[in-house]
C-alpha cells in the first residue's frame, strides 16, 4: 500500500504547510489564501461533474450562489443561529435544489444538458435580482460572521486567522472527502459510466440514478463552498449566483486541468493569484483569462496539471514517476 501512504503524507504535509501560513503571510495574502481554498473546493465539486462524469455544466453557480444566499438570509432572519446550523440549513437547501434540478435536467445529455444548466442558472439569477425583499437585489446582503461554538468554548471568527483555520479544516476535509469519494464504489461507478455507459447498464447499474446522486452531491459540495464565500466576504451579492460565477468555476477547473483530481485546486491558485495581480496591471484581465482559456482548449486540453505531469515524466522518467506524489493516487483515470 505504498500509494496510500504517499497520499497520506502529501495530505499531512499540505495541511502542515497551510497551518503555519498565518505566521508567514500578511493579512492581504492570508485573505487571498482563504479565497483560494474556497474556490478550490468549488472547482473540485465542479470537476466531479466535468472531469469524472463528463457532464458539462454552465450553471454550477446555481448551487454556490443558492448556499451563499441561504447563509446570509438565515443569519439575518434567525437571530442567534449557531454557525453549524447555518451550514446545515444551507447545505440542506442546496442538496434539495440539486436533487430537483438534477431530476429535471439530467434527462438530457451533452450540449442540451449544458444549455439547460445555463438557462436554469439564469432563472435563479433573475429571481435573486427581482426578489429584493429577501436577497437585497442589486444591493446584496451584509452579515457578520457568527462565532464558532464548540460546546466547551466559543472562538470569535471576527479574526481572520481564526476564520482561516476554520476554512482550512472544514473545506480541507471536504476536499479530502471528495478525493476519497472518487475511489469509492459510487465514484468509480460514475467514472466508468463516462467510459462505457452501455456496459454499465448491462452490468446492473442504474446510470440515471448514479448521475442524479453525483449531481446532487456535487451541488451540495459547491454549496459548502458558497457558504464560506459568504462568511469570508461577510457579504453576498447577486454576482454569487450569476452566470459569471459559473464561468469562473469552469475556467478554474479547465485551466488547472480536469483530468487530475488536483487540477482544479491548482487552477484555483492560478486564477485567484492572476485575478489579484493582473487586475492591478490591466483592467482587461478577463480578456487575458479568456485568451488563456481558448488557447488551452486548442492546445492543452489537459490543463496545467497535464503540463506539469508531462514535465515530471520528462525529467524524472516514467519509473520514478510511479512513486511521485503528483501522478499516483491522484490520477482521475484508474
Amino acid at each position: 500500500m505504498k500509494q496510500k501512504s504517499i497520499s497520506l503524507i502529501t495530505i499531512v504535509v499540505l495541511f502542515a504547510v497551510a497551518a503555519v501560513m498565518p505566521a508567514v503571510l500578511k493579512q492581504y495574502h492570508l485573505n487571498m489564501l482563504t479565497e483560494i481554498i474556497i474556490f478550490a473546493l468549488y472547482a473540485v465539486s465542479y470537476n466531479l461533474l466535468l472531469g469524472y462524469a463528463g457532464l458539462l455544466s454552465f450553471g454550477h453557480a446555481s448551487f454556490f450562489g443558492l448556499a451563499a444566499f441561504a447563509t446570509a438570509v438565515s443569519i439575518i432572519n434567525i437571530p442567534g443561529l449557531s454557525i453549524w446550523n447555518v451550514i446545515l440549513i444551507s447545505v440542506a437547501v442546496t442538496t434539495l435544489a440539486g436533487f430537483a434540478l438534477g431530476g429535471l435536467l439530467l434527462r438530457h445529455k451533452g450540449a442540451y444538458f449544458a444549455l439547460l444548466t445555463l438557462a436554469f442558472n439564469s432563472i435563479l439569477f433573475a429571481i435573486a435580482t427581482k426578489w429584493h425583499s429577501v436577497t437585497g437585489g442589486d444591493d446584496g446582503l451584509s452579515i457578520t460572521r457568527p462565532d464558532l461554538s464548540l460546546g466547551f468554548t466559543t472562538i470569535p471568527l471576527a479574526s481572520l486567522t481564526n476564520f482561516y483555520y476554520l476554512t482550512l479544516v472544514v473545506l480541507g476535509l471536504a476536499i479530502i472527502f471528495c478525493w476519497y469519494f472518487t475511489k469509492t464504489a459510487m465514484g468509480q461507478t460514475v467514472l466508468l459510466m463516462r467510459e462505457n455507459e452501455d456496459r454499465m447498464k448491462f452490468l446492473g447499474y442504474n446510470t440515471n440514478i448514479s448521475r442524479l446522486i453525483l449531481f446532487t452531491f456535487s451541488g451540495a459540495v459547491a454549496g459548502l463552498a458558497g457558504i464560506f464565500y459568504t462568511f469570508h466576504f461577510q457579504f453576498v451579492s447577486i454576482s454569487a449566483i450569476s452566470g459569471d460565477m459559473s464561468t469562473t468555476v469552469l475556467l478554474i477547473a479547465f485551466v488547472g486541468g480536469t483530468k487530475k483530481f488536483w487540477g482544479p485546486i491548482l487552477g484555483a491558485f492560478v486564477y485567484i493569484i492572476l485575478q489579484n495581480y493582473l487586475s492591478d496591471v490591466t483592467d482587461r484581465w478577463p480578456l487575458v483569462m479568456g485568451m488563456i482559456f481558448v488557447l488551452m482548449v486548442l492546445f492543452v486540453p489537459g490543463g496545467l496539471s497535464d503540463v506539469i505531469t508531462n514535465l515530471w515524466h520528462k525529467f524524472f522518467g516514467k519509473k520514478d514517476d510511479k512513486d511521485g506524489k503528483l501522478t499516483t493516487a491522484e490520477e482521475v483515470r484508474p
Partner: peptide
C-alpha cells in the same frame, strides 16, 4: 470486479471502496 460488485450491491456506495 465492476460486475462482481454490482452483483453484491456495491454499486452506489459513498464510503466503501470496492
Amino acid at each position: 470486479l465492476t460486475g462482481v460488485r454490482s452483483r453484491h450491491g456495491l454499486r452506489y456506495h459513498f464510503f466503501r471502496k470496492p
